[in-house]
Design a binder for these strands. Structure first.
Lengths: 179, 179
DNA sequence: GCTCAAACGGATAGTTCATCCGAATTGCTC
DNA sequence: GAGCAATTCGGATGAACTATCCGTTTGAGC
């Protein structure tokens, strides 16, 4: 990918900046263009689909999650590694509404996202393998199912008036332990 | 509310019939009208908003849930009552995608829905009160939070390829028990 | 079978979406 | 710093969809 021309970089940054001030689910390209002071065509050129824009908006958060996965992999207590990682992932997903769709998407538009996701999901798998082996997480539960549970918890937290995720997280963690 | 004229009843039934064959989230009124062989205006007259249509589509399922709540209230084992009801509610929500939005909506368009919801939510509250008193459900958890958890589980199950809700349900039930 | 309130249908105005292409800008070379 | 090719810009544009309005039709009661 060749370096961006200076005007293109400026447009891209403006669009992302404006997009960050909108609800993640209600990104209307025409509005973004007007507010960013660029043409609609410019927005569509930089981000052919809404998902491409969401990926770009989410990239920072995804990198933070990647770092947290590495930290969890360095943790020797398998149970603590799972608890820390799930809490962190849930927090990030709550903070950045676009994260869940990006994590769940089967296809990624950007290579950076694909690489980050690969490390994140691989590390997560590894942490769960250890946790199952240590007997701190039910063995009859796939990695994908645990991911889905975190997404479900995000959904549950968002339904509440207060966004206190802790009770929900505790229920998830208690539920994950073997009977 | 006066009885429906015969042609109106026919139109309404046709629209509901067609709507049932569509994805709950993608109900486009113009399409429904064409497929049902009525004018768009007719659709909008019967169902001023998408939510009104979803309520109408959901009413049967809501009645089934009401019956299940009554059954759970008759159950003497508080823990079993909770488990049975949550499983049933989750199944119904998975079966009828419109149920979650209807249950969560603060305002209801139809009186029948309002009444059914009132009994359902009241009964659910009662069952949880008993369960907390019996020490089979964590006391630090509001009824609303448990409702949100069920909705979160629905979300989690839908994310999976297989729609086997049982593992998710087991995790929820295990998590709900006091530590 | 007459009346009239109720229901019907679809034309239409108002939005939003996404593309296309002539104009303008940029960075490179000399 | 002038010329040039490549890239990007911007918004006009048409397609798709929403929701309303009103002249016409239908059905129920007398």
């Amino acid at each position: 990918m060749p370096a961006l021309r200076s005007d293109a970089a400026r447009s891209r940054a403006r669009i992302l900046d404006v997009a960050r001030r909108h609800e993640p689910g209600a990104l209307r390209f025409n509005d973004l263009a007007r507010e960013a002071g660029v043409g609609v065509g410019t927005v569509y050129r930089h981000f052919p689909t809404t998902h491409a824009l969401v990926e770009a908006l989410t990239l920072d958060t995804l990198e933070r999650l990647r770092v947290l996965v590495r930290a969890a992999l360095a943790e020797t207590d398998a149970g603590r590694a799972v608890a820390d990682l799930l809490r962190a992932a849930l927090d990030l997903q709550l903070e950045e509404g676009g994260l869940q769709p990006v994590l769940l998407a089967a296809e990624d538009e950007s290579d950076e996202v694909r690489e980050a996701k690969q490390e994140i999901l691989g590390g997560f798998e590894q942490i769960l393998v250890r946790a199952r082996a240590a007997g701190v997480v039910r063995p009859d539960l796939s990695t994908a199912q645990v991911e889905h549970l975190v997404c479900g918890m995000e959904h549950a937290v968002r339904l509440g008036a207060s966004s206190d995720r802790e009770p929900y997280l505790q229920i998830l963690l208690a539920g994950l332990r073997p009977a």
